[in-house]
Nucleic acid binder design. Structure first.
Lengths: 231, 231
DNA sequence: TAGCAGACAAATATCGACTTTCTGTCAAAG
DNA sequence: CTTTGACAGAAAGTCGATATTTGTCTGCTA
């Protein structure tokens, strides 16, 4: 299973059976960073992770190298690795870029619309809605799955990868702001449904507006509830 | 020296003194892929690279993992690494994305314009023009340096990294099409100067037009001269 | 003759030990 | 009292060897 699998992002929750130790370490560390278990800027010592994941040093090092792709880990030559720092400025940048790139991707995706894409998007929304526990990890996967499904038809794998990366970076800030805050006082379910409805109607402008508004609202929400601004 | 150093992209040609074996392997393999020494889709066997670079397996593996970030290498779990494939479709995608993202970056860069940025861009052009051998490696570095210097002031490190990646991916296609073809029958020097002039005049629209036209011309040029289209 | 099973060869992935580099502390000098 | 230098501990980086996996080739069977 390739590391960067974009197209299956909306697939069923992956079997946790992991083929290689590197892959397992990659998943585990990625999750720890996204969830905030490893704090922004924190030094990632090989020995510590090695013990925590019960693996050798090689898989850990390689996983960390791979996580550099996702901008979740910084590599400092001869000085090891650290979790990517977080700050208000960085958050704003991510939000802005996300809006720009996803807008682009969504428009292209709708322009190329076909039945398979549409049905996949509908299914993704359905699966997400069905999952009631909004704090669970699988919900996060399904949520990402839905958003990626909307963009999946844009015909540009590289653009998709960028969007996927930015999504993850953004998710981390959600957790940093306190996972419980998010989604509480808002009707995100409705927002998702409305975005999908516009997309299904092939209304590019409306879909894009709704998507961006969705992100801006979430962004304002997070900003207001105070971001962690360490290192 | 960090692997992902965007801000110094236009700095003087880097000292070749390499601190870590991984870093050395990274640079060497990256160059081999960009230049076409390692063909698209080619299997990258650890033993072979290990011997060729006179290093251990660990640095090679880690370098390959890092090159995954740049989309220059594909990692297939339990099946090793291979150089990223190349095809017409991929080239078109890169060109299109590049135009979109660099347009964005250039506009922001000019919007934030200040003296330091402007002078850095002027210097970068000068250094590139001074280098007469247009085929040498250092010219390639200076050329990238100039283009990145134009964008450097956009205030978005992530966007810059994306542009840098796309630049590299594009460079590879230049080499694939035959390094000598490029730049031969065109006055790229003039085009560069004109882009810079527009940027210095803070004429956002003109600068963007000229930049995109520059890329489109190069793109058409490469497309016409026939791309390698092997898996 | 086509297809499948098993074994052999090659290459990847992983481990554990060794070397190099960094970091923090403590003492001596300015 | 601050600063500089060296030493010791810790951590990163690297190497060589081993274990697992994959791909291929052969030979048997229907």
């Amino acid at each position: 299973m390739p590391v960067n699998d974009l197209h299956d992002a909306a697939a069923l929750p992956q079997t946790t059976s992991v083929t290689s130790a590197t892959q397992g370490a990659y998943n585990a560390i990625r999750r720890m960073i996204l969830v905030g278990d490893l704090r922004p800027g924190e030094k990632l010592k090989i020995d510590v992770l090695k013990a925590r994941l019960d693996t050798g040093a090689s898989p850990v090092r390689e996983a960390l190298s791979l996580l550099t792709s996702d901008q979740l880990v910084e590599r400092i030559d001869q000085r090891g690795f650290r979790a990517a720092p977080a700050c208000q400025r960085n958050f704003d940048e991510i939000l802005k870029l996300r809006c720009a790139l996803e807008d682009m991707a969504l428009r292209q995706s709708i322009a190329n619309a076909d039945d398979a894409w549409e049905e996949h998007a509908v299914l993704s929304l359905h699966r997400m809605s069905r999952e009631d526990s909004k704090t669970s990890d699988t919900y996060e996967d399904l949520h990402k799955g839905f958003h990626m499904a909307l963009l999946a038809n844009c015909g540009s794998p590289i653009l998709l990868k960028f969007c996927s990366q930015l999504y993850d970076l953004n998710v981390r800030y959600r957790y940093l702001a306190g996972r419980s805050l998010d989604y509480k006082s808002r009707h995100v379910g409705d927002e998702h449904a409305e975005i999908l409805a516009a997309a299904v109607k092939r209304d590019v402008g409306l879909a894009s507006d709704r998507l961006l508004s969705h992100y801006q609202k979430t962004g304002a929400f997070l900003r207001q509830s105070g971001l962690v601004s360490e290192s």
